[in-house]
Structures are given as structure tokens and as C-alpha cells.
Nucleic acid binder design. Structure first.
Lengths: 163, 163
DNA sequence: GCTGTGTAGATGCGCGTGCAACGTTCTAAG
DNA sequence: CTTAGAACGTTGCACGCGCATCTACACAGC
């Protein structure tokens, strides 16, 4: 298997092995994410994105976060988050609350029902992450993985992984 | 930061650091994929999924693949692939061709135009993979990464990465 | 006070996706 | 030959997403 590149476009050739690593990473990630999402959907009727939102809120002071901040943490566009919170609100898992200091701003607040739902779903989520990911790697590999991720992902500074 | 788990549901607690590795992996992957897709879209008006299809076809004997096999390699549902190939065919990058030995089957075949388009887009793609991923890691890390992926992804046997 | 620039969220729209159901064809059992 | 079941691919449908746009508000400068 060789990689053909239009002449003179890339400074340095990429070996097919390097490319294969990248491709495999993509596949592994997609596969794991799908299993995780399917499990959450079947057992708790909760999409992965919804689970992420609930998690982020539950870990924030007063269980609340500005829509904007929330969008950043959940890797969703602003509009995407608006609709997702719409749905979560419809299901009673989240409330919207005005921001006193800035009339433009809205807080998304985790409700008690939301907290319960999250607590119910979390074992499923963690079991999935274990089975698909953590259990397969040993402690050393996990450390290596963390080190690589710190290089790959210019973190928002407040969340650096210890080597 | 501590992870709260409903009592007695998971055999063994997951440390917050382990969980953080997983979360970061998700984010890094999403971020890289988005940049890659955006680049391809801007420079060549080609979605990442389309690029993957063209690539798979170009690497297959006679530049053709059965729809089913193609769907597996591209990580897309059958229906998703049907529509995607519809679009690629509309744009003249791919043709559908009947299968002689099995009247149910269809081949997706890369056209010359498709090959050209792929060749044009490939430098962009490779540059992106380099910039977002390969250049950031050194050779040793890449080897570690490959080793982990081989454990994580039960590959179709024909595509194992060398340690 | 007004005005201009920037920011926080919400909305219209089009697109791509997966699921379930369907028609067609292949294969095996009787 | 006939019939049951499985496999291949397509289609109807609903949903979730991102982009561009819009409104409401904030904060500067005059």
C-alpha cells in the first residue's frame, strides 16, 4: 500500500503507516462513540450529547452554566446547543434562567430530575468507557495517551492532564 | 474533581484522571476532524465522507467496490452510503455499475474525474493530518499510538498496524 | 443623550444521517 | 418446481446539526 501524492505539494512524504495510524484512530473513535451512544439510548433514552450537557452542568457551581460556556465545553455550535437545551427543557432535565448581571445571558440549570437522570445513566456510561477503552489499555499506555493528548489538544489551560 | 457513581453499579471506580483521558480524546478527535473537513470544504468543496469514499475506491482493484463493502470501510450506514453515492454520481465523481455475478449487487466505480478530484484534494488532506496530528507527535509516540489502536480496534485482520 | 461596534441567544433553512420498511434477487430445503 | 429465508440496495420519514441571519442587549466614544 502506497500513498500517491500529487507532485511537489507536500514538503515531506507521509508514510502509509503514519496515515494508517490516523485512519485507525478515526475508526476506533467512531466505533467507541457509537457503542456508547447506543447503550445510553437503549438503557436511558439519552443521547451522548445530552449526557455531556448534563454532566457539564452537574460539575459546575450551582449546577448552572451560561449557554455560551456550555457550548464550548460540549463541542456543539451555538444553535445546536439552543435546540438541545430546548429538548432537555421540554423533558424537564434542565431549566433556563435569566442572568442578573447581563440581560442578554441565560443560564442552563440542571434540575433535580436532570440530576437523577444523570445519576442513573452514569453507570452505563462509565461501564461503556471501561469496556471500550480503559480496560483495554494498561496504566502505562493510559499515561502515554494522556501525554500525547496534552500535545495534541491545546487545552483551555484549566484542564491539563497530569503526566 | 470527583466522579460520583450510583452505589454498587460499577465493579471498580474510575479515577477522574482516567475519565479525563477519555474526554480529552473525544475532544481532540472532534476538533481535528472539523478542521480537516473545513479545509477540504473550503479548498475543494468536498466533505470528509466524500473524500473517504473516493479514497477507498481509488485503493481498490479496478477502482470499484460493492456498496456493502464500501459502507463498512467508510463507517456509514447503508442508507447513508446510498445517498452519498447519489451525490457523488450527480457530480460525476463516481459511477454505479451492475455486478455480473450477482444481480442484486452494485459496484461503485471511481471515474476519471473522481480520480482527478481526489488527487487535487489529497495534498490538502495530508497537510491537515500532518499539521493536526502527525507533526505534533514524534516517531516513538506514533508507535505507541499504533500499538494502542491495535488493541482498541479489533481490525478486519487484513489491516494490522506494525508495532 | 445618541450612535456604532461587539456579544448572547434564538430562528429559518438546507443538508446529511440512521431506522424501519420495501422490492428484488440469491440460496437452500422440501 | 416451489417456497422460505436471507442478503443487497433503495426509499419514506423524522431528527439533529451547522451556517447565515436576526433581535436584544452591552459598552465604548462623542
Amino acid at each position: 500500500m502506497t500513498v500517491t501524492v500529487a507532485a511537489g505539494e507536500s514538503r515531506e512524504a507521509i508514510s502509509s503507516q503514519e496515515l494508517a495510524v490516523w485512519r485507525m484512530l478515526q475508526r476506533a473513535q467512531v466505533r467507541i462513540t457509537r457503542v456508547l451512544e447506543a447503550d445510553l439510548l437503549v438503557e436511558h433514552d439519552l443521547a451522548l450529547a445530552s449526557y455531556d450537557v448534563l454532566t457539564q452542568l452537574s460539575e459546575s457551581p450551582d449546577r448552572r452554566l451560561r449557554m455560551n460556556d456550555l457550548a464550548d465545553r460540549v463541542l456543539l455550535s451555538r444553535s445546536g446547543l439552543t435546540r438541545l437545551v430546548d429538548r432537555l427543557q421540554r423533558d424537564g432535565l434542565v431549566e433556563r434562567e435569566a442572568c442578573a448581571s447581563d440581560a442578554r445571558g441565560l443560564f442552563a440549570v440542571l434540575t433535580d430530575d436532570g440530576a437523577v437522570r444523570l445519576a442513573e445513566a452514569t453507570p452505563t456510561y462509565l461501564r461503556g468507557v471501561r469496556a471500550q477503552f480503559l480496560d483495554i489499555l494498561d496504566a502505562g499506555e493510559l499515561r502515554q495517551c494522556a501525554a500525547m493528548l496534552n500535545k495534541l489538544f491545546p487545552a483551555p489551560a484549566d484542564e491539563e492532564l497530569p503526566a
